[in-house]
Amino acid sequence: MKDFLFVFRTDYSKMPKGSPEEMQALSKRWMDWIGGIGAQGNLVDRGNRLVPGTGKVVKPASVITDGPYMEIKESIGGYTIVKANSLEEAAALAKGCPILNFGGNVEVREISAL
């Protein structure tokens, strides 16, 4: 089996900002989805969410700027690492991701062993 990275991208303005109960229900949907992948034996690292609107961008010549920028519509919200036999199988695992319900997407990338 190969390792694949799921990169979760979304427009933060479209993410739900509900009551604590609604947010708890959304969190449960994420945990259920990740738990399902784990139950199949395909979870390598459940990953983490990234803090929105924070970070630095390192460029050539040792230039460091603030970023990612909030004016960017789509931002990376987090990641997970799974294992699958093929890119197609990994993409099928991503189909149930809750971020898809909010206009987000999951980028699926094979991780090189080198």
Results as ranks from 00 to 15, higher is better:
30 W>Q: 04
38 G>F: 04
78 G>Q: 04
49 R>K: 10
66 D>K: 03
77 G>H: 02
107 E>F: 04
35 G>V: 00
84 A>M: 11
34 I>C: 03
29 R>P: 05
40 Q>H: 05
54 T>M: 08
67 G>F: 07
111 I>W: 04
60 P>L: 11
37 I>V: 07
95 K>D: 13
70 M>A: 14
59 K>P: 02
57 V>W: 00
39 A>S: 09
48 N>S: 15
106 V>N: 11
53 G>R: 11
69 Y>I: 12
82 V>Q: 02
68 P>F: 01
104 G>H: 12
54 T>K: 11
42 N>R: 12
42 N>E: 07
99 I>K: 11
69 Y>K: 15
100 L>W: 12
48 N>Q: 11
108 V>E: 05
66 D>A: 11
97 C>I: 05
41 G>Q: 00
84 A>L: 08
102 F>G: 08
44 V>E: 09
65 T>Y: 00
82 V>P: 01
40 Q>S: 14
30 W>H: 10
39 A>Q: 07
75 S>F: 00
98 P>M: 04
34 I>H: 05
71 E>I: 10
58 V>T: 02
71 E>H: 09
92 A>Q: 10
102 F>Y: 15
68 P>T: 00
50 L>Y: 14
96 G>I: 05
48 N>D: 13
85 N>S: 06
59 K>I: 00
106 V>L: 14
46 R>N: 14
40 Q>N: 09
90 A>P: 04
62 S>N: 15
81 I>W: 00
94 A>H: 13
94 A>K: 12
54 T>E: 10
65 T>L: 10
51 V>H: 08
46 R>Y: 10
61 A>R: 06
31 M>K: 10
61 A>P: 00
61 A>M: 05
72 I>Y: 14
55 G>C: 04
69 Y>G: 13
66 D>V: 05
99 I>G: 11
112 S>A: 09
88 E>C: 08
86 S>H: 00
55 G>M: 01
108 V>F: 06
91 A>Q: 15
76 I>C: 05
90 A>N: 06
28 K>S: 10
33 W>Q: 10
57 V>K: 11
53 G>K: 09
82 V>K: 04
37 I>L: 02
40 Q>M: 14
90 A>F: 03
84 A>R: 08
63 V>A: 08
80 T>W: 06
